[in-house]
Design a protein around this nucleic acid. Structure first.
Lengths: 140, 140
DNA sequence: TAAAATCATTTGTATATACAATTATTATTT
DNA sequence: AAATAATAATTGTATATACAAATGATTTTA
């Protein structure tokens, strides 16, 4: 059933969530080759590109709560992909060599995901849609 | 931090999820008066408007997996807001009197939520945005 | 400088959601 | 009619996420 055929088609809550779940599912599929969820993947890329980045900074950029970031970091640490270093009340994060070796594969995941949706929507449409999402989000 | 200022601002996964969480939060707030989550609220309204609706039909319309619908129904049953009747392999759902008395309050929640976002965005923009979400969702 | 307030992170707990496997029923095939 | 397949819902388990409370460190205030 298409989202537009649902009883709640006109509701932002419903429509937004349905789309987010669909997109999430596509992303999960794309990140399977590296055995990471999309959130873990994005977080790891952030650490690779910005060694020593702070936990708070990660939370801001990923727009997740600090507690959620802690949970993501825990798992990445278990997998030996990052290390956390606590200095005073701040925590900084570094990628391990294992993670560094993974970088090309991670980039491929991002690329594949981008191609997947931008081919389905058309590059033009998909870019302007993302911009539209920002505008809306900033107004709410 | 605005979503557009994040490192991942250009990514559909990130942008979509960030917006969905924001919208969800607004919706949760609006549904507080009836002490239900938005999903429970929408499900209950569906049952009130269509007594005897089947579980599968609910899943289709809410675009949730059957197992998720089962979980939502369990909770609504605990709260004595619905009853499930199993006939063969099908399950149908009815609202209790308690739920029927709640209907006006439920409608108010939907209305408040709609007003909240359509005032922030403008009625025009918000309606066309929802339509845009459908178009995108159907193409993915 | 001691006490209090603030701040960054973590921990305990709770949520909605989904997947995979299971159960129970109905439909199909042989 | 019996065996098999298909179907609808449920159950067990796992996920990401968030809130509230706790911890530990720094800064401000008295």
């Amino acid at each position: 059933m298409k989202t537009s055929e649902s009883k709640f088609a006109s509701c932002l809550y419903f429509t937004c969530n349905a789309l987010a779940r669909k997109v999430e599912k596509m992303a999960i599929e794309c990140w399977k080759p590296v055995q990471l969820s999309p959130s873990h993947g994005y977080l790891l890329m952030m650490v690779l590109e910005d060694p020593g980045v702070g936990a708070g900074n990660i939370a801001d950029n990923l727009q997740l709560k600090p507690s959620t970031v802690t949970r993501l970091l825990e798992k990445l640490e278990e997998k030996k992909l990052i290390v956390r270093i606590t200095e005073g009340k701040q925590t900084t994060v570094f990628a391990t060599n294992k993670a560094k070796q993974l970088l090309p594969a991670l980039k491929k995941c991002v690329e594949n995901f981008y191609n997947l949706y931008s081919e389905a929507l058309g590059k033009q449409v998909s870019n302007s849609f993302v911009n539209n999402l920002h505008e809306i989000s900033d107004k709410l």
